[in-house]
């Protein structure tokens, strides 16, 4: 049997106000003037893996298709290389828009399950909150445990290599005035960043 899928969108699929919300984020105002030229997608080294190209993301945001954007893989594939941002003929800060979308996807818990990238982001921020610094090897181990423990096994060679070259650090780095940092983070907003993985 041939599988078919309806792709039509109804007005009810739009989340009114979403585009205004994104465009009110500092640095994202220019999105209004996107001309859908595709320079961002053409420049992006990762667009070839994305379900929506960066250009399509701009169109979807502008048309208030919030759920489609936030659940897409695109924002998580963005490597923040800023290639699109410096090339866009309308000087739209696409990378910053991607960040604004990632933040909202995490906040609302809409992202692909067991997708390692948002998990990394959350583990990272949690480690910074607790220690003030990142110890990469420990971070990666936590990530693998959360996202895909089999990856630990397949990466044994990498681990061995790091040990051999003296780059495998097991003693956690930390700052002295951790309390000060936590106080500052708390003052910046009551946005709790404790990991709460969504379905």
């Amino acid at each position: 049997m041939m599988q078919i899928k309806r792709t039509i969108k109804y007005e009810a699929d739009r989340v009114r106000g979403f585009s205004d919300e994104i465009m009110s984020v500092s640095g994202c105002e220019q999105l209004k003037s996107c001309i859908q030229c595709g320079t961002c997608s053409g420049t992006c080294p990762l667009s070839i893996y994305m379900d929506f190209s960066p250009r399509q993301v701009m169109a979807l945001v502008r048309a208030d298709f919030k759920n489609e954007v936030l659940s897409s893989k695109t924002v998580w594939l963005c490597a923040s290389c800023y290639a699109c941002t410096v090339e866009c003929p309308r000087q739209i800060r696409i990378t910053d828009i991607m960040y604004a979308l990632k933040q909202r996807a995490i906040k609302e818990g809409i992202y692909p399950k067991r997708f390692p990238i948002p998990i990394l982001a959350k583990e990272f921020s949690e480690m910074v909150r607790r220690k003030g610094r990142i110890t990469e090897t420990l971070l990666v181990m936590r990530l693998f445990l959360k996202a895909n423990w089999r990856a630990v096994l397949s990466s044994w060679r990498l681990g061995l290599g790091l040990i051999r070259t003296g780059r495998f650090v097991v003693r956690a780095e930390r700052i002295e005035r951790q309390a000060e940092l936590q106080k500052m983070l708390a003052a910046a907003g009551n946005n709790n960043v404790r990991p709460t993985e969504a379905a």
Partner: peptide, 26 residues
């Protein structure tokens, strides 16, 4: 699509020796 870039580095045999246009066919 607005062309992102013209390069001379080849990723496949048919690109060898050519100018390669990278673009989103929107």
């Amino acid at each position: 699509g607005r062309v992102a870039e013209v390069t001379d580095w080849a990723l496949s045999p048919e690109e060898e020796g050519k100018l390669v246009i990278r673009v989103e066919d929107t």
